[in-house]
Amino acid sequence: MENVIVAKNLTKRFGHFTAVDNISFEVKRGEIFGFLGANGAGKTTAMRMLCGLSKQTEGIATVAGYDIHRETEFVKKNIGYMSQKFSLYDDLKVWENIELFAGIYGMNDKAIRSNTDLLMQELNFENERNALVGSLPLGFKQKLAFSVAIFHKPQVVFLDEPTGGVDPITRRMFWEMIYKAAENGITVFVTTHYMDEAEYCHRVSIMVDGRIEALDSPANLKSKYQAANMDEVFQKLARKSQRTE
């Protein structure tokens, strides 16, 4: 299968500090790729580079077939992004949020309208179309935020701790949506602090001090590190960290 993300020797230095240290990996189309690491391991910096928001110091990477350094704008057009911290505008209505984000991604009015109808049906949201996003229960918001992030049919969606603080049932429903998106060919690049969610990924990488210390399927990682679950794998690897911050 074709690679949608390819990173070769990607490095980012801030002064003397090497935040991301020579990482290389590939992510395939339709894959759910878990990007794990302790706080300060370099996940956010790496993700920002892949999204075209920060220039690498060394190395090369392509996302959706575009060079992250030379073709930044094409990268941005072909990805979606969602995080727990920022996703939708509370004081805009459901349809206004969709129109805003879809418009930013350059979709035309006709496509926005017909796809909005389709999405509202799919999510069973027809009655909420005119509701302010701020009035929706958290579970609805999550669903909508993810749907908006993939509304323009990006090749890759980046999810930065999408489920932090969410109740256990909503968290699981959210992962069922992730699975569906992946089955439809969208590549999912996701960070999380919930180690049970790491088990849901096809492959998982674990960053320690800016480097990728391990990268494999959860089953292979567990057998390699003789661990009962991904939490143990994580604990074994992340404890090697020498970084003081």
Binding site: A38, A41, E161, H193, F234, Q235
Partner: peptide
């Protein structure tokens, strides 16, 4: 411990 990685949480 919200938003804190599993090692630091422990």
């Amino acid at each position: 411990t919200t938003g804190v990685d599993p090692v630091s949480r422990k």
